[in-house]
Simulated assay, not measured.
Amino acid sequence: MTVPAGERGTTTVAPRAVRRIAERAAAEALPDGGSVLRGSAGVRGTSARISVGVRLPYPVRADEAARRIRERAAARTAALTGLSVPRAEVRVDALSAGPAPVVPEGVEVAPGPAGGRSGPRIRAERRVPAAALAAVGAVACGLVLADVVAVRFGDAPAGWRTAALDWAATHGPADSAVRIGGAVAALAGAWLLGCALLPGLRRRLRMAAPGPEIRAALDRTAAARILRERALGVPGVVRARVTVRRRRAAVRAGVGYGDPAEARAEAVRVLGAALLELGLTRPPELRVRVRREAGMPPPVPEESVVAVERPDAAGRSDAATGSDVVGRPNTAVDGTPGARGGLRDGGEA
């Protein structure tokens, strides 16, 4: 007698196994230098939802790399688990900075792919608020349900429930305790509505996407690291501090040698090109501040350097007087030691 296939048993793939498979599949499609940071998976019936966070090498086209990783992870997970994967998410959480390429003078870098079209905003999962609300609701509903069941079986109602009902019957809206409780409930409700409606993930910058089904974001810390590496590659810059926000990228650079004005102009050019290479939907406004490091001498102007010529046989010389010569104060024109303060008559020391 042959047992029908539906009665032989069931096969259940745990979310942890699906997560590990998705991480391994994503690692197979990573470019050289990339790595998988973390992943998550959820299983409902015969379908699975996977999400993988990766680190990509820089520079790299993040949208193309994320598309390859997403397709590979979805296909391999579906093939190895037998589950359908209707949705797969890839998050670019970090970039590994490499050596900064040299930007030639006058070369402009085009903006992100697909003309800078923005993909759908990535929303935060809000795991902590959802877990806290679910725990509080489960405890409250469990206590009320247990007391109602006990009363149905003939037991007396719980003391806390009768005390709460008596207190509510004797206190009205004019009491301070009722007003404070109402204010707390209103604040909690506004906070929950904000968590439900606002997208969150303010530390990630949206990147341009070639299609509506691809969402890409860049962490602000990774963007600041890239800009800092580029700033340190500018000649004369020995220290750099970068702060990247949603609308502004502030760079404070310290110059150890050279002209600060020239260093700032070069930093603006290099960092402006780096912002465009990040492929962001809305590149932040760049603000660069340059100052000379403490203890570094200012550059000597070229006009203050005077050429010194050796006198001819008649003792005449076209050189400037001793007060105009920049150099050793106790040396005469012909190189012999002389008195402090300049030259004597006739060019002698």
Rank of each mutant, 00 (worst) to 15 (best):
D219V: 08
A224W: 03
V109D: 03
P113K: 13
P113Y: 13
G200Y: 08
A135I: 06
G112S: 07
V107K: 01
R228F: 11
G98Y: 02
G98I: 08
G159R: 15
R204K: 12
C195I: 05
A209I: 05
A134C: 08
D175H: 04
P157K: 08
G211P: 12
P113R: 15
A183R: 02
L197G: 03
A114K: 13
A222V: 05
A208L: 11
V148K: 10
R161F: 11
P111F: 11
A169M: 10
L227S: 06
G211Q: 15
G200W: 07
A209C: 08
V109M: 03
L192Y: 14
G200D: 11
T221V: 13
A134D: 10
E108Y: 05
P120I: 01
E213M: 07
D166I: 09
L201E: 11
T162C: 05
A185W: 02
G211I: 10
F153W: 14
A168F: 02
R127Y: 01
A223F: 02
A169D: 07
L133S: 15
L227M: 10
V144L: 12
G189H: 07
R225S: 14
P129Q: 05
I180L: 09
W191G: 12
T170Q: 10
P104V: 00
A217C: 01
L205N: 01
R204L: 10
A185D: 08
I122G: 01
L197S: 08
E105G: 09
A168E: 09
D147F: 03
G98H: 04
R203Y: 05
A208N: 02
R161C: 00
L218E: 06
R161V: 15
P199Q: 08
D219L: 00
V144K: 07
A158P: 01
V151D: 00
P129H: 09
G106D: 00
L133N: 15
A163L: 03
A110P: 02
G98S: 04
D219M: 03
D147R: 07
G119V: 00
A146Q: 10
T170D: 14
V109L: 09
L197T: 14
R203A: 14
A146R: 14
V128E: 12
P129T: 11
L218D: 00
C141N: 12
M207D: 02
V102Y: 12
V184C: 10
P120A: 12
A135S: 15
W167N: 05
T170K: 13
G106Y: 01
L192C: 11
A174R: 05
A114L: 14
V149K: 08
R203Q: 09
G106I: 06
A130K: 15
V103Q: 01
A134G: 15
W167R: 13
G194S: 12
D219T: 02
G154P: 00
V109R: 04
A222K: 03
C195A: 14
R215W: 04
G211S: 15
A217L: 01
G194R: 12
V109P: 02
R152F: 06
P212D: 07
R121P: 00
R203L: 14
P157F: 05
R220Y: 03
A185T: 09
D147A: 00
G106N: 09
L192Q: 07
E105K: 14
C141V: 15
L198T: 02
A186K: 04
R123T: 03
W160P: 00
V149S: 01
G211W: 15
I180Q: 12
P212R: 15
P129F: 11
G194P: 06
A146K: 07
I214K: 00
T170W: 10
A163E: 13
P99C: 05
V148D: 12
L145Y: 02
